[in-house]
Design a protein around this nucleic acid. Structure first.
Lengths: 337, 337
DNA sequence: AGCGTAGCTTGAAACGATTCACGATCTTCG
DNA sequence: CGAAGATCGTGAATCGTTTCAAGCTACGCT
């Protein structure tokens, strides 16, 4: 079907194209009779206006307000991770309240996918994005902003962007301090891939606190992922260590839960033999077999704050100044440490 | 910033607009020196082509192919649920392979949000959507298809749409049969909201099998959500039942894990006193404190199949005939039942 | 030298909607 | 009756890209 154009509608209704356009855009300035005639013609021909032409003509709109899709993208590394989905949920709440759609996109830790996803959002003229960056450099960030999208960094400090993050150094510090206060001084840090900034910071915070207290250096166990299965594997590796650590700080709860379960299954008493502290405080932490002591991240709040920042950035336009929101993590004492 | 156009690039590079366009679209027919010069100019000016103009000019594409955004929406009820995210992940795999972006949208069990999300996808001219429907009627389905999107139903049988689902009746049957074979004949079914079709079917399958074996009627415990916390609550309710059931079938694993943990904590032996079977076989099931016996749903495969159906529907166009894919669930025996 | 050809490049004509300066009618009122 | 408004409509110009017939060079061949 060869796209009926405004011209055909005009011919059919016996008016000029300008009038048809007016009916579409400022109906109040067209006489009623004409308006009805045009509308009838539109109906009969099944005309739908060509958005491309409209946009082309309208050019970079003054405030480009309503030519943007009412949607924000939320790019996280792995949506299967409850931490990520909670953050995204917090963001969704804020976006929904403001009348925006939330599109979750998982980058699977791949810079390439991240790039493609962002490109997609730009093409679709999304209003903005929350990005937990994996390969996003300052240059691409600038390019994004150039294109008119507001971008907020999740869980990363940004020099030239708004960001919302949790103070991971403090989190590591709190965990180590807690373990030390329980009399544990041979500590291990269990993580998945060690590169992500937040992980580095947690390790740093823990190591620093440990050093300050004069404990032995932190032993790091690197696993393949932040999953319970890998937590079990970590437990097995842990038991082979000599001397065995007496306190374990896990990079996230999933890992910790798997680890605790495996330890218990092998007859190790938690926390008597080994104390374990997780990170995140996911829902499961509290209802685990041995309820997990962990560092709570205000996840939903984080997402919410990030969303608010993005909305503000968009609303403020040129006058916007980047803000950094840093939320404090918090120790949740349960039974493992 | 007034949108650098192809014309300025041409001026800068000292060539005509046609040539710039050629560099963009058929670089092989432009001499290398010229090409480089143009590319440099593009770089310097930070030119990005105006998609609207491109589309406008290209007119109704042969098969409206690239007028559509290369993206599929995946609408699920709750992305925080590992089941949903696994399904979505399977779909993502298939879409990525085919070169499409995957947009995850959670409807939070709200028909209104579902409607808005779909409307959004239509507006954005997404290629299609996978929908785990909460309020989607046949009429809106038809409207969607009318608009050119391909739509595949997730986990629901569809009369006038492709669908991919797991045979939940069979799942319920398998679970009940397993519990019966362990000598348990007072069975309880624990669920979140009881309305969703798949839940109804699981209960049905279990009830039928139980009836056939002449056991007592199935007791249903309805909780507020399919979460571990609610599983704990269910455990407490369970213990107050008189006579206490000897076998429990949970509508999902999260519920089952919370339930088992709480039972164990209260000194109930699982499976000796109460056998428990979950549903889904999420990763955590295997690494739980007491590894969970469960009904595995081929989640990723489900998502993958659904995605393939959607891609096929789109590729086949008018000649397409709806297909129903039904996958079989499978018993995974671990320790709880 | 003359001619054909291959390889590049050019520039104007679309695409479909919006805008806006201007005309055409119709009212109103001195 | 005629002029000034008011009210509607008109149609050409425009947005940025792609397309394509036609032009230009340089080269090889006879």
């Amino acid at each position: 079907m060869p796209q009926t154009s405004i011209r055909e509608v005009a011919r059919r209704a016996g008016v000029s194209v300008g009038t048809v356009s007016n009916v579409l855009n400022r109906p109040e300035m067209v006489a009623e009779a004409t308006r009805d005639r045009v509308r009838a013609a539109i109906e009969e021909l099944g005309f739908v206006r060509n958005e491309s032409a409209r946009r082309l003509r309208q050019g970079p709109a003054p405030d480009d307000a309503d030519r943007r899709a009412r949607a924000f993208g939320v790019l996280v590394e792995d949506l299967a991770n409850p931490y990520a989905s909670d953050v995204a949920r917090g963001a969704e709440l804020a976006f929904e309240e403001a009348g925006y759609e939330t599109l979750w996109i998982s980058t699977g830790y791949s810079p390439e996918r991240e790039r493609r996803a962002l490109e997609f959002l730009v093409e679709q003229r999304a209003t903005g994005a929350l990005v937990n960056p994996v390969g996003l450099g300052p240059d691409s960030l600038a390019a994004l902003r150039e294109s008119g999208m507001s971008v907020v960094l999740l869980d990363r400090a940004g020099t030239d962007a708004c960001s919302a993050q949790v103070d991971h150094v403090a989190g590591g510090d709190i965990a180590a301090a807690r373990l030390l206060s329980l009399g544990r001084d041979r500590l291990a840090f269990v993580t998945g891939r060690p590169e992500p900034q937040p992980i580095v910071e947690r390790a740093e915070g823990a190591a620093r606190t440990l050093a300050k207290a004069g404990g032995e250096p932190l032993v790091t166990l690197t696993q393949d992922a932040l999953s319970p299965t890998e937590g079990q594997a970590a437990a097995r590796r842990l038991l082979e260590l000599d001397p065995m650590p007496t306190g374990v700080f896990c990079a996230n709860d999933l890992l910790a839960i798997g680890l605790v379960n495996e330890l218990v299954k092998r007859g190790v008493r938690v926390p008597e033999d080994i104390a374990v502290i997780g990170y995140d405080d996911i829902e499961l932490a509290g209802s685990a077999a041995v309820p997990l002591t962990t560092i709570r991240q205000p996840r939903r709040e984080l997402g919410w704050e990030a969303a608010e920042l993005a909305l503000a950035e968009y609303a403020e336009g040129a006058s916007h100044e980047h803000r950094q929101v840093v939320l404090a993590p918090e120790l949740v004492v349960r039974e493992t440490g």
